[in-house]
């Protein structure tokens, strides 16, 4: 028995020693110490088009986003294919850490004010670790339109709606990134009895890089079955990201005119089949306002 153990130990040592002898190439040293690396720049901007990407503002970064959705392209020459009128959204996103972001925004659409928090709590890693990143996003929206004088009593709380979503994203190759985005929309007050207060959607998005500064993006949100029939449709958007140093320009065509989650996830009315599409853009400008380290 003792002999066996000794033999085993010798064998082990021989194997171990052999391993050391075999390390005659210096470069082997580097392979041994390889640690998992966080995958970065999965998408170019904080939004794929309308919906959140896994990206957040870096620590101390203030991201100013100005976005427009013009009128219906199908309105033709009279409205210069929609360019005569636009909906606007202005937003500020600040990076508390490299993973945690808080933001505020204002849209002309419904005179909506937003406050949001976004946290990438799992990073995608290469060489071990998680194959996907997980990002949670919650936004509180306040409708600012004057209450109609129809005799119905409404309170401030009726203006509020909430969206919670999870962004599961993976950079599959240096060029291709994919995201799966389930969302839950809750509205304290809906337009009429035909509409549900809670709506769920399942979204998917992608980015494909054409070169280092240009990419094609797309996203689709499928409205899960609602208990009551409404006339809202699924949101589909296609666009281009153009990066020029400090700015990211996002140009797109979408059937959703609202630029906050409640509007484009749950309340899209124009359909691609009818050609009721909107041209729009997001301009992202980053300012470093706080210290990173």
């Amino acid at each position: 028995m003792k002999r066996t153990i000794c033999g085993l130990a010798t064998g082990l040592f021989l194997g171990f020693g052999g391993g050391l002898f075999a390390q005659d190439d210096l470069m082997d040293f580097f392979d041994d110490g390889a640690e998992p690396a966080v995958v970065t720049a999965v998408f170019k901007a904080g939004r794929i088009i309308n919906v959140q990407s896994p990206e957040t503002s870096g620590k101390g970064e203030m991201n100013f986003i100005i976005a427009h959705r013009f009128g219906r392209i199908s309105d033709g020459w009279y409205d210069l294919f929609g360019l005569d009128n636009a909906q606007m959204r202005m937003g500020l996103d600040y990076g508390v850490t490299d993973q945690l972001q808080v933001g505020v925004a204002r849209s002309g659409f419904g005179k909506t004010l937003e406050a949001s928090a976004k946290w990438r709590f799992v990073e995608q890693q290469e060489g071990g670790g998680s194959p996907v990143s997980l990002t949670g996003y919650s936004v509180l929206m306040r409708d600012g339109l004057r209450f109609p004088e129809d005799g119905i009593q409404r309170k401030g709380v009726h203006r509020m709606s909430y969206v919670h979503q999870l962004v599961v994203a993976r950079k599959c190759s240096p060029d291709l990134s994919l995201a799966l985005i389930p969302s839950l929309v809750h509205r304290n007050l809906v337009g009429n009895v035909e509409q549900a207060n809670d709506v769920g959607t399942i979204g998917a998005g992608f980015r494909y890089k054409l070169n280092n500064r240009l990419s094609v993006n797309g996203e689709y949100h499928y409205l899960l079955p609602r208990p009551v029939e409404d006339n809202f449709v699924n949101s589909l958007s296609l666009g281009l990201d153009i990066e020029t140093g400090g700015h990211v320009f996002q140009l797109h065509i979408t059937n959703s005119r609202g630029m906050f989650e409640r509007a484009f996830l749950a309340e899209t009315t124009s359909s691609w089949q009818d050609g009721d599409l909107y041209f729009g853009f997001n301009i992202n400008r980053v300012f470093q306002v706080g210290k990173r380290r």
Partner: peptide, 22 residues
């Protein structure tokens, strides 16, 4: 011999780091 992961370089601004890598 020396070896350094490119992703391990850190910049004072996150955007610089992204541009450097991307």
């Amino acid at each position: 011999a020396f070896q350094v992961p490119i992703l391990s370089f850190h910049f004072p601004k996150a955007l610089m780091e992204e541009h450097f890598n991307e």
